Amino acid sequence: MSYIWQSPHWPRFEWKLDHLSSRIAAVRLDQGRLIGRVESLGFHTREATVLRTLTDDVVKSSAIEGERLNEQQVRSSLARRLGINIDGYVTPNRSVEGIVHITLDATINCAEPLTAERLFQWHAALFPTGRNEWGQKLRVGDWRDDTGGHMEIVSGAFGHEKVHYVAPPADCLDAEMSAFLGWFNGSHDLDPLVKAATAHLWFVAIHPFGDGNGRITRAIADMALARGDGGAQRLYSMSAAIERSRTSYYEALQSITSKEALDITSWIEWFLDRLGNAVGDTLQTLDNVMVKNNFWQAHAASDLNPRQAKVLNRLLEGDFEGKLTSTKWAKLTNASQDTASRDIADLLAKDILRKGEAGGRSTAYELALDFPIKHAPRYE
C-alpha cells in the first residue's frame, strides 16, 4: 500500500474550490449569525456559552481517542483559568490541567506563532507523567523515533492486525515539521476554513509524536479556526461534532492518507460539514436558551409546584423523549396518576401547556410556545 506522503509532489495539496464554495458560504453565514446572536445576549449567558463550548471541546477531543475525562474537573479547570465563578468546583488532576492548557493556549493565544517548541510543550502537558493512559513510556516533548518500529495505525486483535496507515520515517520529521510550521504560520491567500481542514489532515499524516497526535491535531485546527475568527471567543466545538461521527472521521482521513493522490477535496467537504454541525448546534442551543428565558419571564408570576417546574424544565431542555402524557408525568415525578392529572390541568388553565391534536386515551400535551424548542440539522 502507498501513502499520501510518498507522492513525489507531497505536500502540494489540491482541492476543487467549486465543490467547496457553497459549503464555505453556508458555514460563514452561520458563523456570522452566531456572533450576532451571542452579542445580543447578556454577559453571563455569553460566559456560560464559552465555558460550555470549551468543556465540550476538551472532553470530546479526548473521547475520540478513547480517554474519558471527568467533565466537572474539566469545567472547573477552565473556569479557574478564565476567571469564571462556578458552583461545585472540583480540583482537576494533572492530565486534565494539561489538555485544558493546550486548548486555551491554542485558541486564546492563536495569533502567536506555532513552533516546534510550543508543540513540545503541548505534548509534555498532555503526558505529565511521561506515560500515556495505558502506562506506556513515551518520548515526551520531542518528535517520535523509530526504535520500536515504524509508526503505524492498526486495528484488530493480536496476530490479526490490519495496518491502516504508516507515517513518514522519524528521520524525516525535522524537515516535515519545518515545512508544515512554515506553511501554517505563513501569510497566504487561503480561506481560513480550508486552512484549518488542510492543517488537520497534514499534521495527522506526519504523525510526529509517539502518542497524542489526534488531540494536538484538533488543537491546531481550532487554532486555525480561531485565527480565522479574529481571535473571537470559542462559541462552537468542532471536537464534539467529530466525536459524534467518530467512525466516519477515521474513514474520511484514511480514504485520503492511504493513497498517493494529493486531491483532498473530499476531506475538506467532510470537515466543513462537521464544522457546520458544530456552529448549528450552538445556534440552536442559544435559540433554546432564549426560548427558555422568555418562557420563565412570561410565567414568573405563576405559582408552580416542584413537580411542574421539573417537567417544564425537561421539556424546555428539549431532551424529553416522545410525547408528554399523564402517565409519563406520573413516572417522571414519582406521583400518582390523579396528582399528575391535577398538575397538568392546572398548567392547561394557566396556558402553560396545551393539548396535542390527538384526543381520548392518546391525549398528549406540549408547551404553549410561539417558538418551539428546535434541534440543529446534522451531517452524519
Rank of each mutant, 00 (worst) to 15 (best):
S245C: 13
S258I: 00
S255F: 01
N277H: 10
N305I: 13
Q254P: 01
G276F: 02
S245A: 15
A261N: 15
L262W: 08
A252Y: 04
G280A: 09
S248Y: 12
I256A: 04
S266M: 11
D281L: 14
Q284A: 15
L286Q: 05
L262G: 02
A241Q: 09
A300R: 14
Y249C: 03
N293A: 11
W296C: 08
I256Q: 12
V289F: 08
I264G: 06
T282V: 07
F271Y: 10
T285G: 12
F295N: 01
Q297F: 07
I242Y: 13
T282M: 05
Q254N: 15
S248G: 08
D303P: 02
L286H: 07
N305R: 13
D263N: 13
F271I: 02
I242F: 15
R246P: 07
E269K: 13
V291C: 03
D303L: 10
T265C: 08
Q254T: 09
E251G: 08
E251S: 13
E243P: 08
L262T: 00
D263T: 06
W267N: 10
H299L: 03
S258V: 02
S302I: 00
M238F: 14
V279W: 08
R274I: 01
L272G: 09
A301H: 10
N294F: 02
I264N: 08
A300G: 02
S239V: 01
W270G: 02
